[in-house]
Every structure is written in structure tokens, then in C-alpha cells.
Nucleic acid binder design. Structure first.
Lengths: 209, 209
DNA sequence: ATTATCTATAGATCTATAGATAATGC
DNA sequence: ATTATCTATAGATCTATAGATAATGC
């Protein structure tokens, strides 16, 4: 039984390699042009020129600029996701936060990626919530599960469902980064730690010691 | 001494009236078309047709669709702003929150305005933070002042500056509304009250009560 | 006479799609 | 022979701007 999708076994090797190559070239060219000109100002033509393909080839791989930014967000989430998944099942939430903050802050501090944060956040709001399909966003799913086990250990206020709390926390982190990049009043890790502390104080159970 | 701006005294009455009239026609036409077609899908031409002016007239009044949405946000904040400003100077923060939630939830529940929340939020992130000019956004200034007096009464955690806390609270409220409108898991006022409770638990001083 | 408001329109950029090419499966 | 990847391009929409008109200030 064949699976639909990327991993169709050994079929079409040359073609697959070629496609992924142009896709990657377009992706990297796009990020570079985005950083240079700003997402809304830049022209698709310049991206295509840098990637040495036709303008239409861009649209073949990415329906719009937004889809490039969503791929960047997924790439940004990858290191934190792997680190969190490597934690033991009964790890405390603080360990989850620590890894999330460390890897996320690291990713967005590289070069001038931070300039794209507001646009990434904005796209994420317009696109990912519409899915309403938690499993499609792996980081949301992973953090959601951690919140659920934490709730079952009575680490969280029972007033709000743990999955909602998890979404809310991730939203807070992304919003904090987006506002940080336009007004970096303090180092990014400090900012994220502050937000996390604020969140955890608010979310801990009323009877908690 | 004449002030530059809208209120140039009694100069150009007919022209002023005419300009404001077309501007309002365009504004209302735009909101209507946005709700019907979605902000990114709709064509400026349809807005102009409904307002019975040329397409270029739209651009004369609004540099882009985003500027219409910013005006909607300012309109949305107006009722809460007035109610908050009418409070006595020493009113507790809970009173400020109550008014903010009541008026904001009311505004965005009218008809299908809620559909525009994600776009409004997204524009607000891309535009208003860049100003870095707190006074330009009256609601931010008003709530910021309330947070400052609350901090001076030791109602808030001293870890984070009160203006930052205020911005963060407003961001939380707007983000919660935006995610509510794509997934209304509970009534909007309940949602906003929950967010506020979470926030206040997190932001109250450690030695509190 | 000058200026603010608006229209008409040229040029830029995007979106949609018909067609070319080369890899694939039978 | 069929299909996936990519190109060339027509048509749609936007952005920028030169010009028309009518209100304004002197």
C-alpha cells in the first residue's frame, strides 16, 4: 500500500531531487530578499532572479509569500520540538519552557531573521488557527501533550483546559518575540523568561504552594 | 497661531464637508466589502464602485487597505477609552478591565465584524508597534497610565515595568479575540475574563494579599 | 491665482493558465 | 503514453502620477 505525499518510496528519484533543489533555492532566495527589502515590499521577480528560475516557478512551489514564511516558522520550531520530544514523559513544565526558550531565541537571533518575526507572527495568526487541526502543527501538539500531563499532575489551574493554555502560551511567546523585534528593550531570552514566569504564576492552581 | 491638521478653524467648510463625506462613504463601503469577501481577496475597485467614486479616490483617502483596518481598530477602542477616562483616578485595575472587556466584546460582536479581527490584529502588529510613540495610540496611553498608578499602589509585580505590562495585557486581549473569532470555544466576554484573570494572577506582586 | 479633491490612465506587478520538456511507469 | 516540473504569457489588479475641476484666500 503506497502512501501519498513526499515519501513515495523510490519512485522518481531524479525528478524528486531536482524539485527539492529548486524549492530550496527559491526558499533561501526568498528569505534573503525578505530580510533585505521587507516582505511586503519585495518583488517575486527578484526572488526568482536570485534563484535563477522563472517567476512562475516560484508560484509552482509556493502559492504565495506567506507560504515561505510558514515554512520558516516550521523550520524555527524544529530544534525546540526535537529537544522537547527527547525529554522524559514526566519532565516538569519548567524543563519544557527552558528548552523552548533556548532554541527559539537562538534561531531568531541569527543574523537579521528577527526582522521577519512580525510577518511570521501575522501569517501564523491568519493561517494556522484556521486549520483547527492541532496535529498539523507538531510543536502545538507536542507542547499541548506536555500541558495535559502537567494538568493531570495538578500543576495547572483547572479553570482553563490545558490545550487552550498551551496554545495561549505559544501565542504569548510568539507575540512577545514579534514585539521584541520592533522594540528590543531587553535581551530576547530575558524577555521570554519574563513572559513565561508571568504566565506560570497566572496558570498555577489556586491551592498551589 | 493656526494649528496644522483637521481642525483648521473655519477654513474651507464646503470642501472639508465634502472630503469627510467621501471618506466616510469609502470607509463604510470598505468594511462592508471586507466582511463579504475577506480583506485580502477583495478588490479596491469593488469598494470604489460601492462608494460611487473612482478607484483612485480610495487611494487618495487611504494609502492601503491596512489603513482602513487601523481606523476600524481606533473606532473599536473609542467606547472603552471614553468609559475608562471617566473613571476616578484611583479606581482599581479590575474596574478598568471590566469596562475594557465590556465595550470591546460588544463592538466586535456586532454583525460579522469579528471576521476582520485577525486582519486587524495582524495590521496592528505590523503598524502600531513601529510608531513606538505611545501617545499616538490613545487607548495604550490611557491603560498605561492606569497601570502606572496601580504599580505605585503596589498592585503589580515590580519585576516588569508597568507600561510593558499594560502593552502586554492589551496584546493578550487582542490576540485572544483574534483566536476566538476563528475558534469561538466559549462566549467572547467569558474568554476575555479568563485571559484577564490569568494575567492578573501572573502580574500580582509575590507578597500580595 | 493657488490649492485640495478627485479622475483618467500609464506602467508595474501579480495571478492564472496554456504549452514545452524531460522523467517516469507500463 | 502519461505525468511532474517548469516557462512564457495573457489578463487582472495595483501603484504612481499627470491633469481636470471647483473651492479657497488674497
Amino acid at each position: 500500500m503506497l502512501l501519498k505525499g513526499d515519501d513515495q518510496g523510490t519512485h522518481g528519484l531524479v525528478r524528486d531531487k531536482q524539485r527539492e533543489e529548486t524549492r530550496k533555492k527559491l526558499y533561501h532566495a526568498a528569505i534573503e530578499i525578505f530580510c533585505r527589502d521587507g516582505v511586503s515590499n519585495c518583488r517575486i521577480e527578484d526572488i526568482a532572479l536570485k534563484a535563477e528560475v522563472s517567476r512562475a516557478a516560484f508560484y509552482f512551489h509556493f502559492p504565495s509569500k506567506d507560504d515561505v514564511l510558514l515554512e520558516l516558522l516550521r523550520e524555527a520550531e524544529q530544534p525546540a520540538l526535537e529537544a522537547i520530544n527527547a525529554l522524559p514523559a514526566d519532565a516538569p513544565l519548567t524543563a519544557v519552557f527552558e528548552l523552548l526558550i533556548k532554541h527559539t531565541a537562538e534561531f531568531w537571533s541569527v543574523q537579521d531573521r528577527g526582522r521577519l518575526l512580525v510577518d511570521v507572527f501575522s501569517v501564523s495568526m491568519r493561517r494556522t488557527t484556521i486549520l483547527a487541526d492541532r496535529e498539523a502543527e507538531v510543536i502545538r501538539a507536542a507542547v499541548g501533550r506536555r500541558f495535559q500531563t502537567a494538568a493531570s499532575r495538578n500543576e495547572l489551574s483547572p479553570v482553563i483546559p490545558p490545550e487552550v493554555l498551551a496554545d495561549f502560551y505559544l501565542l504569548n511567546i510568539l507575540a512577545a518575540m514579534a514585539s521584541w523585534c520592533v522594540q528590543p528593550i531587553m535581551p530576547l531570552p530575558d524577555m521570554l523568561n519574563g513572559v513565561t514566569l508571568l504566565f506560570m504564576n497566572g496558570a498555577k492552581p489556586p491551592t498551589g504552594n
